[in-house]
Design a protein around this nucleic acid. Structure first.
Lengths: 124, 124
DNA sequence: ACCAGGCTTTCACAACTCCTTCACGGGCGG
DNA sequence: CCGCCCGTGAAGGAGTTGTGAAAGCCTGGT
């Protein structure tokens, strides 16, 4: 109904993005081949985002998917866990960027190698 | 309600114009395949204009659509945001021009390739 | 039942981006 | 010359997101 590839094998798929690999069936995340230790929320968030790439996912949809209920007013849980997830991903793969913020819209998953070159203006 | 093609899939459509692609459902804008970071107002303006192309859209209609209220006397918000949007589009796609001014009437969206004249494909 | 350790939620503040408004300047027509 | 319209840069306040830490929960082991 939504992402085409998600209709196929909802739980038997493997998501690959740069040096990152998510084996849904095993709830296993590999960073450059080494397993990553994620909590339930962190894992849920990663799958929810990666699964919907490259689209922008709203906080409300993330909350509904990972937490099971719509975002209450003032709830910062999603932000906090995006932060934790980013921290673990960066520690494992410092030269990649995976979660991108779209102010006013939500977050978007996309594996971007941070190689040497630098960008002039926007986009940190 | 207004433009014919907008009656179809109000939120599931994809607007393509030259190297620019707007995925309404995802609030995602791609410039030559790379995602663009637009603010809420910038995105709203782009959609409002692209959605109505090739028609000239008055400031008042843009204000009503994007800001939710008619243009107050002396309000320059629309002009300012057209400028910001142009800046981001030009940075991403320097060889294209998208927003055209019609003095006394408003703005019009149309993808025009600048120097190298090629791949027009669409009507002009 | 108690404890230890990790996980989750909440809170407060910092940092950052966005929105609005103002101000000035150029182009054009009367 | 004057007025109107639009382009453009800047400033301040408003709103959004990043971040560290405290407090609450839950679970497995003893």
């Amino acid at each position: 109904m939504e992402a085409a590839h998600r209709d196929q094998a909802p739980e038997g798929r493997v998501i690959e993005a740069g040096e990152l690999e998510v084996r849904i069936a095993d709830a296993l995340v590999l960073a450059a081949g080494r397993p990553l230790n994620l909590s339930v929320r962190e894992y849920g968030l990663l799958v929810a985002l990666a699964d919907r790439a490259p689209r922008i996912v709203s906080r409300d949809e993330l909350s509904a998917t990972v937490w099971g209920n719509p975002l209450r007013d003032g709830d910062r849980s999603v932000d906090v866990y995006v932060h934790k997830l980013r921290a673990k991903l960066e520690e494992a793969l410092p030269s990649w960027q995976f979660i991108h913020t779209h102010v006013g819209f939500g977050y978007r998953f996309d594996a971007v190698p941070l190689h040497g070159f630098h960008i002039p203006a926007t986009t940190r």
